[in-house]
Simulated scan of single mutants.
Amino acid sequence: MTRTHTVLESPVGPLTAVLTDGALSGLYMNMQRHRPPEETFGPPADDDAPFTPIAEQLQAYFSGELTTFSLPLAMQGTSFQQRVWAALQEIPYGETTSYGEIAQDLGNPNASRAVGLANGRNPISIIVPCHRVVGSTGGLTGYGGGLDRKRHLLDFERRTKGASLF
């Protein structure tokens, strides 16, 4: 298993992108809760070319031109976490859902807390849009990157989505 990383700049601060055997296995914000230790990211990339598609798609996302990412992902987690992370990728751009709704969709309506824990362990922020999950009343709840970033991402997507409707 070959791992390498680089740091990409973004409107929400620096993002550390980690590739494992050529697939994106991590995208971490600085000071992110549950961010693995830096030494697990592999060495800094000698060549940023493998990171170009990630950088280009993030740039297109932050400029309002991209609403769905298409990158090879290699997320490591339990089978339940994998199911939650797959469900996150189904949340439409500019929309939100709740932990309870995801639990219901996964066939276990009593698992909203477990969904929240899996959501918090999402290793690929923004691209796997855990920021689109809110509390049952629609309020912003915890976010590994901080509530200010979550609010920024949700507001950005809503503004962009609204502008594209006209």
Rank of each mutant, 00 (worst) to 15 (best):
G116N: 04
Q104F: 10
G142K: 07
P36Y: 00
G145H: 06
G94F: 03
Q81E: 15
M1F: 09
S70A: 15
G77K: 04
E56Q: 14
G77D: 03
G142R: 09
C130H: 11
V134M: 11
G162V: 02
P109Y: 09
L24H: 01
S136I: 13
G116D: 05
K150C: 10
Y28Q: 02
G64V: 07
V7Y: 05
V12M: 01
V18K: 00
P50L: 03
G107P: 03
V134D: 05
F41P: 01
A163T: 11
A87S: 13
P36C: 01
T6G: 00
P37I: 07
Q89P: 04
D155S: 13
V128H: 04
L71K: 07
Y99L: 10
R151D: 14
M1V: 08
M1Y: 06
E56K: 11
P37Q: 11
S125E: 15
P123D: 05
T68S: 14
N110D: 15
Y61L: 09
S125D: 13
I102L: 12
A17Y: 01
V133A: 06
G145T: 07
R35M: 08
T137Q: 15
S70M: 13
L73P: 07
T52W: 10
R151N: 11
L15N: 03
E39A: 14
I54E: 02
L71F: 08
S136Y: 09
G145K: 03
V84W: 05
G100R: 10
F166M: 12
G13I: 08
V128P: 03
H34Y: 15
T40A: 06
S25Y: 05
G142E: 06
N110G: 14
N108K: 13
L140H: 09
G64I: 08
A49W: 01
G94D: 03
Q57W: 09
T160N: 11
Q104M: 11
S70G: 13
L15M: 08
A86D: 14
A60I: 09
G162Q: 12
G64E: 09
G116A: 06
G146P: 08
P44W: 04
T6K: 00
P129S: 09
L71W: 02
S63R: 14
A87E: 14
G146R: 08
F62Q: 05
L8C: 02
S63L: 13
V133D: 05
V7M: 06
S136M: 12
Q57G: 07
Y99G: 03
S125Y: 05
G42E: 01
M1L: 10
P50Y: 02
T4M: 07
G162F: 02
D105V: 09
D148P: 03
F156E: 03
G138T: 10
A163N: 12
G145M: 05
F69R: 04
I127D: 00
H5N: 11
